[in-house]
């Protein structure tokens, strides 16, 4: 299954950048992760594991938006998540 990331229009991108900024991340982190993602899907929810800016491992949570996936939040991986990610082909 091929996945498409939908960043929305400028208002939505601005909101997302603010939201991620609160977590010490940015849209560039999400784009970085999207370029090499280990994804898991459950219904309309998608968890993606990848590398953000500077190679920092992050988790991105997406929700379904018609045919594409819209990023809702993200955070830096902790040890548990990083171990899982490496076990499933990440790193």
């Amino acid at each position: 299954m091929e996945l498409t990331l939908d960043l929305g229009d400028e208002d939505e991108q601005e909101w997302l950048d603010d939201h991620l900024g609160e977590r010490g991340l940015s849209i560039e982190d999400v784009m970085g992760a999207a370029s090499s993602l280990v994804p898991r899907r459950k219904g309309d929810r998608l968890f993606g594991y990848g590398r953000g800016v500077g190679g920092r491992p992050i988790v991105v949570v997406f929700s379904k938006n018609q045919r594409a996936w819209r990023p809702r939040t993200a955070w830096p991986m902790n040890e548990v998540e990083e171990r899982w990610w490496r076990r499933h082909g990440g790193g």
Binding site: M1, E2, L3, T4, L5, D6, L7, M31, A34, S35, S36, L37, V38, P39, R40, R41, K42, L46, F47, Y49, V59, A68, W69, V80, E81, R83, W84, W85, H88, G89, G90
Partner: peptide, 21 residues
């Protein structure tokens, strides 16, 4: 998340580079 609750409910999707809209 699947890292904490690994179960069959999570569909494994092939690692990939997403296209962006």
């Amino acid at each position: 998340s699947p890292a904490y609750t690994e179960s069959d409910d999570w569909e494994a999707v092939a690692p990939q580079s997403m296209s962006v809209v």
